[in-house]
Amino acid sequence: MNSEKMKIPQNILFNILSIIVAFLLLFPVFWMLITSFKTEVEIFRIPPTFYPHVLNLKSYAAQVETGDFNMFKSFGNSFVISTGAMLIAVLLAVPASYAIAKYRFAGRKAVLLGFLVSQMLPVSVLLTPMFIMFKHFHVYNTWFSAILADATIGIPFSVLILKNYFAAIPKALEEAAYIDGCNRFGAFMRVLVPVAKPGVVVCAIFSFLYAWGDLAYGMTFIINQQKRPITAGIFNFMGQYGTKWSYLSAFAIVTIIPVAIIFIFMQKYIIAGMTNGAVKG
């Protein structure tokens, strides 16, 4: 709350404190990382070892080899499903949010309200009817079922975020495009979307992450282990080999990798999304 810079000793003290706080809060993640490099025997050792005394990479290697511990396939499935859901969400949300920001069309308030409400819905309400619907239309047990379902989380989030980005673009910019001979669609594609690009990136990231973290849809609509996302794969594995913590921790780390990569390169977009956006999935 002080605008001027801190004095040096105070600055050092706060930096040290902040590192302690970060270590305590993120300890579970470090612990999982350390565990994933230990052998099964070492994991069960008492007292626990705080770094792997024998480096064990088998839990990672097994994920690309054939057999029960192969998670590579599930990782790919998750990637396809999340990318698909992200594309649907962005393609539908970009024009929709532009319209809500820039046009006072009939029923605008109702549409806005609809998106707000759909953000609050629990998966439980949608699961059974979607399950029946997907069975009817034969998308049950395919990637598409999870893609279609996951996009319903990304769309309302994206519309509500992006609408603010479009609303902030001055009207003069759009009018200049009309003078240059653009029609509405041309102005939208060539002028507005490029200006709102940071917002589009936020939406793409969050739509991807929502789908990446989904368990309920992927597990319920896809029963074929070969097509299931990695979250469902992990859950399944926990049921079968509940105490194989070396493999489980390696799966956990592999599942976090895309999240970590996105986080490292796009941190500012994530903070923007969290502070502008409303509820998570």
């Binding site: 993120l26 926990m238 956990a252 998570k280």
Partner: peptide, 19 residues
């Protein structure tokens, strides 16, 4: 960095804490 717990898939978080 402290945002990480919020971004992680819940399945993974559940697994870590279960451990």
């Amino acid at each position: 960095i402290l945002m990480i717990p919020w971004m992680m898939p819940m399945t993974v978080t559940a697994l870590i804490f279960k451990f």
